[in-house]
Every structure is written in structure tokens, then in C-alpha cells.
Design a protein around this nucleic acid. Structure first.
Lengths: 110, 110
DNA sequence: TTTATATAATACCAAAAGGTATTATGTCAA
DNA sequence: TTGACATAATACCTTTTGGTATTATATAAA
């Protein structure tokens, strides 16, 4: 995987993986525990967990025959930061809207 | 495409598409103009633009034989909002770190 | 009216994704 | 030690993705 950013966006592209992250935000889980929440095989869940781990969105700790999957929320920051670049465009739009409304109010009051 | 969220995350998954959004943040562009920034065919660029339009990240306006592609930054908000859910985990981690540092400083000063 | 240009629409291809099923391996427990 | 269990590793299948190349259509310009 080239950039961390790419690993994160790739991981977030699949709805099952986004749901997994949500589940892991409540508590650490084994593969079996994660699988309980989905209608797909454990093998499929494992593949999703592997992609999440590649994107550094989770860490995995071996504990006996189990593997504990743990959310690493900091990794989401690179995606959040990328999106943040567009923040000022949202704000600009908001400002434009505000200006338009104010202008209309002025017209209404004239 | 089911949820708007899925459309957005799907669109963001490809690095070329993320770059296209960056370019469109500077100005509206025709397909040809967008293509100038990449080493792939116009056909390939057009496909990326279609996926971006499906995710409502851009709008397209016909102008003669050209198609003007325009960034719709509001659409990125659904992704930003999804990520925002994890914000408190970052903050929690930050707080934990802060607490640890403070604790260490107290130790150092004792 | 030609002719060039911008995009649309297809057909096609290779690789990646998302899934299943099966087999192998390591570990806990009786 | 033996059996059950959690996960790993493969092999395999289908669909989607990212790309090319080619052809068609609409519009601008000579």
C-alpha cells in the first residue's frame, strides 16, 4: 500500500468494514464476535479485518487461540484531514447563502 | 447506489478521483481539461467523473459540445459526519495522553 | 456543407474485490 | 492424548473496477 491515506480510504469504501469499525468502537472483539453481527462467513469477515489492519484502522493482538481486534481511531485522521481541505468550500457556500439571505431581507425591508 | 454515504465513500476510494476533486476545487473544468492532469485516456477520466457524479460529489452542466464539471463540496459532508463519530475517541486518546503527561510531570516534580 | 472537436457509448480485457468452501494449524480442555 | 475450537491458509467463483480502443453523435468552425 502506497500512502496511508489510500489504505484508509480503501478500507472505508466497503459498508461492512465501516460497520465493523462501529462495532469495534464499543469494545475489542475476536473474529468470532465480529462475525456474529454479519450474515457472511468468518472467512469473509477475516478478509475485511485484514484490509482494516492494512489500513492501520485496527490492531490485532494474539491471545491464545484468539485474535483480539482493537480499533485504532487515530488512523481515521488522515481521511478526516483530507476532507478538511474542503471545509472552507462548505463555509464559503454557507457564507454565500448567508449573504444572499441578508440581501433578500434588506430588499424585503426596503 | 443505496445510501448517499456509500456513494461518497465509494467515490473517494480511488486516488485519481480524489485528485480530480482537488483539481475541481480550483475551478470548473471540461472533461478534456481534467484529462490534461492525468496520463490515462479521456474515456477513463470520463468513467471517474461518472462515479463522482453518482456520488453527487460533482454536478455536470452541458454547454454546447462541452460538459462543465463542477465540484459539489457539500456532498463530502456525509463522509465527514461519519468520521466525526470517531472524533470523541481521538479526543479520549488525547485526554488520556494529556493525563499521562500531567501525571508524569507531577511525578517529576515530586 | 465539410471538417474538426468534445463527448458518449460500446465492446473488450486484466486485475482486484467480495464471497464460499475446504483443509491445516495451534491451543484449550476433558 | 484426544477432541473441540478459533483462526489461518488456500483454492475457487463471480462481479466490479480501472483501463484501452473503437465507433457514433452532436456541435463549432472553415
Amino acid at each position: 500500500m502506497k500512502s496511508a491515506e489510500q489504505g484508509v480510504f480503501r478500507a472505508l469504501a466497503d459498508p461492512t468494514r465501516r460497520q465493523i469499525l462501529m462495532h469495534l468502537s464499543t469494545k475489542d472483539m475476536t473474529i468470532a464476535e465480529v462475525s456474529e453481527h454479519f450474515d457472511i462467513t468468518r472467512g469473509a469477515v477475516k478478509k475485511h479485518l485484514t484490509i482494516l489492519a492494512e489500513g492501520r484502522l485496527i490492531s490485532v493482538q494474539a491471545k491464545g487461540r484468539e485474535r483480539i481486534n482493537h480499533l485504532e481511531p487515530q488512523a481515521l485522521k488522515s481521511a478526516a484531514q483530507w476532507l478538511e481541505y474542503f471545509n472552507h468550500f462548505w463555509n464559503d457556500n454557507l457564507n454565500a447563502l448567508k449573504t444572499a439571505i441578508e440581501h433578500k431581507e434588506r430588499q424585503d425591508n426596503d
